[in-house]
Amino acid sequence: MLQIEELKVEVSGKTILKNINMEIPKGETHILFGPNGSGKTSLMMTIMGFSGYKVTHGKITFKGEDITHMPINERALLGIGVSFQRPPTINGLTTRNIVELCARNRSVDVEELAKQLNFSNFLDRDVNHNFSGGEIKRSEMLQLTAQQPDLVLLDEPESGVDLENIVVLGESINYLLHRGIKCPKGKPHKEIIQQKIKSALVITHTGHILDYITADKGQVLYNGVLCYSRNAREILKWIREYGYEECIRCAK
């Protein structure tokens, strides 16, 4: 689904990502760990193609297409969706408006989606205007659910979310990624999930989100280098116990 090869990225003339190689196969959810400032968000912004993230070497391939220099909206239409940490407010544009824009030509029941995310009261408010951290997360998930991307990039989905809503949020991520689906009798699980199967890259530095979603693999980004890759829970346990630095040292 997504393939990143020897990626080197500069932000304001400074190299932030040094040599990233990463592959997210179809249907897999990967967790990206890393301390603050390690380049996690930069990697996500580069995958999406935001200005200010200059690829100086390497290549990003999505669904077999080289997207390294593709405009943002074309990547979105090709099937990449992202949830932002600090999205801008757009005055006069309601949350309902943007959810409808995300749906493009698909018909979506905005009311129903909002209800699932406990977000109905926000539909007529300007998007992101005075939203709390947790409200932003739910707004972003609502938009992604309408957008239905094949590769979902989530930037710290749990940060700032209160206890009451973290369950709701976790469920919405599972719903979007089509995970944790119950099996009705007589139909193989594989067949049920096949249609809507999605890949995801989830950024976290606390790892709390792993209490609510399942992951296939974890990776650690440190100082602009992906230095470690194995079972996500295992990594989390080690980071909690020994801290990032020790983990990195040990991985060498």
Binding site: S51, P71, I72, N73, A76, I90, I98, L101, C102, Q147
Partner: peptide, 15 residues
Amino acid sequence: DKREIEYLMARGLNE
């Protein structure tokens, strides 16, 4: 704000 433009582009709208 360019951030607003890119935010909407990330949702599939052209510039």
